[in-house]
């Protein structure tokens, strides 16, 4: 079964997501920070990354996403962004590479989590891969 890495500094959200994903038998690993997340990518070689936008800093998530995309070994891994309530207004997820505000993610889900929505998006991204 596909391996999913959740990078989020909120342990409660991670646990909730773990329950949802494990109900469909996905293998779930998690990281509490951007740095830990980047390490785990190398270690665990996940099939998909779920990434919180706001961790240590406002847009740590974007930084991590860019780093994944700039590494030729991992850039193929689909990224599902997790955004806080009302934070997606005005964000353009499809900007070109190189742009300061480039958000190299494949899709996003807004908190609070809706289990069915999360499962659908995860499934879609894994299939597209």
């Amino acid at each position: 079964m596909a391996r999913i890495l959740i990078i989020d500094d909120d342990p409660d959200i991670v646990e909730a997501m773990r329950v949802v994903l494990e109900s469909k038998d996905y293998k779930v690993v998690s990281a509490k920070s951007g740095a830990e997340g980047l390490k785990k990518i190398k270690l665990e070689k996940p099939d998909l990354v779920i990434l919180d936008v706001m961790m240590e800093t406002m847009d740590k998530g974007f930084e991590v996403a860019r780093e994944i995309r700039n590494d030729k070994n991992y850039k193929h891994i689909p990224i599902l962004m997790l955004t806080a309530i009302k934070d997606k207004i005005g964000m353009d997820f499809k900007k070109e590479a190189g742009d300061e505000t480039w958000l190299p993610v494949d899709d996003y889900v807004e908190k609070p989590l809706k289990p069915q929505e999360l499962l659908e998006k995860v499934e879609k991204l894994l299939k597209a891969k």
């Binding site: 909120d10 409660d12 959200i13 646990e15 909730a16 997501m17 329950v19 949802v20 109900s23 806080a84 309530i85 009302k86 908190k111 609070p112 989590l113 809706k114 289990p115 069915q116």
Partner: peptide
């Protein structure tokens, strides 16, 4: 408040949907 309420709701939903 929004961070907390968001986590609460995220934890309630999987339970409500019988995932456990």
């Amino acid at each position: 408040i929004k961070e907390h309420i968001s986590a609460i709701q995220s934890c309630i939903e999987p339970v409500a949907e019988g995932m456990l």
